[in-house]
Amino acid sequence: MLELRPNCECCDVDLPPSATNAMICTYECTWCAACVEHCLDGVCPNCGGNLQPRPVRPAATLLTAPASTVRVFQAGLHRD
């Protein structure tokens, strides 16, 4: 089951389980679509893999399969 991390590792914007702009790599590194396009050039800086849209977990299943609350943020990745 995916962790559904709560934020973008680049800009720290919130990415709730219902976010349609969340992107992940095969290791579940989590980024917003804007950072993937403008800062990361479509490549995960942690593993070098490609990034894909993160699936949305239906709200009804969050009671038994909650999203992660652990925030990961890598200061210095974001380009203005």
Rank of each mutant, 00 (worst) to 15 (best):
I24A: 00
S18Y: 05
P45G: 10
E9W: 00
Y27Q: 13
H38G: 12
E9I: 06
D80L: 10
F73H: 15
R79P: 07
P55K: 06
E3I: 02
G49A: 13
L77C: 01
G49S: 11
M1F: 11
P17A: 12
H38D: 15
A59L: 14
A60D: 13
V36R: 00
V36F: 01
C47V: 10
P66I: 01
C32G: 04
N46W: 03
S18A: 14
E37P: 01
H78Q: 15
R57K: 09
V70I: 15
S68T: 09
L77H: 07
N46R: 10
G49V: 09
G48W: 07
A34I: 11
E28T: 13
E3P: 00
C11Q: 01
R5A: 05
A34D: 14
Q74I: 15
C10A: 13
V56R: 07
P66H: 02
C11W: 00
R57L: 11
L63D: 15
Y27P: 03
Y27A: 10
E9M: 07
C11Y: 02
C8T: 02
A33W: 01
H38C: 07
T64L: 15
P16H: 05
C35D: 04
P55C: 01
L15H: 06
R71L: 05
N46E: 11
W31E: 00
C8F: 04
V70F: 06
A19P: 04
T64S: 15
T30E: 08
C8Y: 01
